[in-house]
Design a binder for these strands. Structure first.
Lengths: 345, 345
DNA sequence: TGTTAGCACTCTCCTACTGAGAGTGCTAAC
DNA sequence: GTTAGCACTCTCAGTAGGAGAGTGCTAACA
């Protein structure tokens, strides 16, 4: 267990290092944080903290730097709550009151704002519509070739799309087909449906020859393409350039790997698949090798009470944790407010 | 005017420099390209070419590097057609036959592919639906609160969206409103409509008290939000990390500015607002200061015979122009094929 | 026993210097 | 008009040296 003084030293070192990005020595610490003891004593404490794994020394005649464990301890036990400045608050307010409602635009803006407020990279996953269960699929005939497909879920979400079908399609085909899909899929969770369930149902459909075969195949395929595409969660990345200002990202090779990651939506989605509430993964705690010298802080956001997406900040392990957490909490609220206000998709 | 030998020297220098990224000296040139003359002669020609502004010398004892003018002359007069390798052809085929149809996914993939095939950055603007003229706006009542809004243009494009409206809405309101908008806007180019025309019509509408005021306002606002959002062209950027491998982008500050640019959709749209066919802007020929040490090569792609979007590659001025042009031409075809095959939006 | 002053030691970083290498322009000869 | 030869210039990589920062250890002190 750490003594009170060791905790203070660790806390001071984290604070100092987060600020300056330079290894902190005993002298700096004694000068800037009045710990009430001499540099020699601090040196002893630092040596102990290093032995316990909370600090690292880049080289023998440099100051100390918090290790992943050190940050972990700081986050779990030492961190104090932060407050937003007025100008930060203003930025968030502007964002809320901008009146933008279109999901793409809101999330892209939000991820950039996240970056601006944290000076790291902002990441946001689009709300998963696929949290609910399917209630019904409707196909509405609009004109000879145009059909409106509607999909209702039990949590009030709605997906829609106009499909273009072959001219031979007749209304009763559509009805049968919609009824078939609705019947087979109703009550099932959306995740399951967009996964392999849909394929199964499709195969079964092909074996039932109650409908003019060719046509059904075409319609079903169009329908399936739509359902699967809708199931795709997207990730919005904002402010990648901001991270280049951080001294730990002066290495081009590192930056390259990160930028490559930001274009791999599948990997990002995996990275952002997180527990509700604030979650912090520091350095090696991350599974993904590329981000093992980074920290990812995330929060989930909810729409109408259901948790549906993740807002996150990715930055160096030397991160202003308290501030990032605060920003994420506020952003989660903003998104909730923006999206819950109405049911527009 | 350049002599035949000067043209050969310039061509050889461009080829060499594009390959090696090192200033090319007279000796290298004599060895690798058999120009049939001695290094001294080449030196004389180089000095002349420099005087005419086609070459630059980074410092007095270095080789020569093509200037923006040099590249321009090369592109206009010296460049030879390139051919795709089998593996490149394969990548493109895979892309076409992947069967993806959803615009977002296709364009994101395409921009990455563009980057992969060029090793620079791929940029693609989403197809402008707003090239045509409005034919009609339809509002179809689906259920008590749900209304399907449809927008037809004279070039066969179709936008649709389900709007959620207040429960008091009645079918005749919708009809009147749709008729009003259709009547006032029909025949007008979409660009105009999503611009200030819509605002004007909206204001006029507010002054006509033929409709229950409050309700109309709400519907009209929802409708307008949709129209304006639909007018927003998007830009897909792919392979930003690839550019970091280029020696001209070792400077972090440069990279930062570029990355920042890639998040400024408005600027990108401006940059990608280009003439039909292949367009090349080299270095200082670009208006945007950030890209004045870059080259942007673009092609427009057409859907059903109408040019609607831009595919482009952004890289260093030291670029394999012939290859990039080739890749862009092929990509434009791919997109045309993908999107024209059906009318799905 | 915990704290502190003093000191030798280590390591990085910056600067200056040097020599090798590459490439040029010029001159004179072909 | 072309070429060989040569003096000159500039960069780059490697090396050496000194300043600066920080440590760990020891011995003295409260």
């Amino acid at each position: 267990m750490l003594t009170e003084r060791q905790r203070e030293v660790l806390k001071a070192i984290v604070a100092e290092y987060v600020n300056t990005a330079e290894p902190v020595g005993s002298r700096t610490l004694a000068r800037r944080h009045n710990l009430g003891v001499s540099t020699a004593t601090i040196r002893n404490e630092m040596a102990d903290l290093e032995e316990m794994g909370y600090l690292r020394q880049p080289h023998v005649s440099a100051g100390r730097v918090p290790s992943d464990h050190g940050y972990r301890f700081y986050v779990d036990h030492l961190m104090e709550e932060d407050r937003l400045t007025y100008s930060e608050q203003n930025l968030l307010n502007e964002f809320i009151y901008s009146g933008a409602r279109e999901a793409d635009l809101v999330l892209a803006t939000a991820s950039r704002l996240l970056s601006q407020l944290s000076s790291y990279v902002g990441l946001i996953t689009s709300p998963r519509i696929h949290t609910g269960r399917l209630v019904e699929i409707k196909l509405v005939h609009l004109s000879q070739q145009l059909v409106l497909a509607l999909l209702f879920t039990d949590n009030g979400q709605l997906e829609n799309r106009v499909l273009v079908l072959p001219p031979e399609v007749e209304p009763e085909h559509l009805e049968t087909l919609a009824a078939y899909f609705s019947c087979r899929l109703a009550g099932r969770p959306m995740e399951e449906i967009t996964g392999r369930l849909l394929d199964e149902v499709y195969l079964e459909l092909l074996e039932e020859h109650t409908l003019s075969h060719n046509l059904v195949t075409q319609i079903a395929e169009t329908l399936m393409g739509w359902l699967k595409a809708g199931g795709r969660s997207r990730v919005f990345t904002g402010g990648t350039h901001n991270i280049l200002a951080q001294p730990e990202f002066q290495d081009l090779e590192k930056v390259r790997h990160l930028l490559a990651l930001f274009e791999e939506e599948a990997l990002l989605l995996q990275l952002l698949q997180r527990e509700p509430g604030i979650t912090i993964t520091i350095g090696r705690e991350n599974r993904l090798p590329v981000v093992q010298n980074c920290t990812v802080v995330s929060s989930t956001y909810t729409i109408n009470g259901r948790s549906t997406g993740t807002v996150a900040v990715l930055g160096p392990t030397r991160m202003d944790y308290a501030h990032v957490i605060l920003v994420l909490e506020h952003m989660a609220c903003c998104l909730e407010e923006t999206f819950s206000a109405q049911d527009d998709n």
